[in-house]
């Protein structure tokens, strides 16, 4: 199945600003989908959270055909 992945905030600079449409296996998690484009969130210092179709999800949640995944950098200053 195909999903779309896009970066937000400082992650755009690190991993590119363009949308990436990737083929992932059925039952794939958000984490596994990100790894198909070379992103291991555990190793990204400013990784914040992910949304699927503009809903906050957990990185271990499954994705579905056509899902739109956004990965946001952590924003914590004041």
């Amino acid at each position: 199945m195909k999903v779309t992945i896009v970066m937000r905030g400082t992650l755009r600079k690190a991993f590119g600003a363009e949308e990436k449409v990737v083929e992932v296996p059925d039952g794939c998690t958000v984490d596994e989908a990100l790894q198909t484009i070379g992103i291991n969130y555990r190793e990204v210092k400013n990784f914040g959270f992910v949304s699927v179709n503009n809903m906050r999800v957990m990185i271990s949640d499954p994705v579905n055909e056509g899902d739109y995944i956004k990965a946001f950098s952590k924003v914590s200053g004041g």
Partner: peptide, 10 residues
Amino acid sequence: HGAIGGWSGQ
């Protein structure tokens, strides 16, 4: 809640 960093905020 509010937070900022670089060009981004929430």
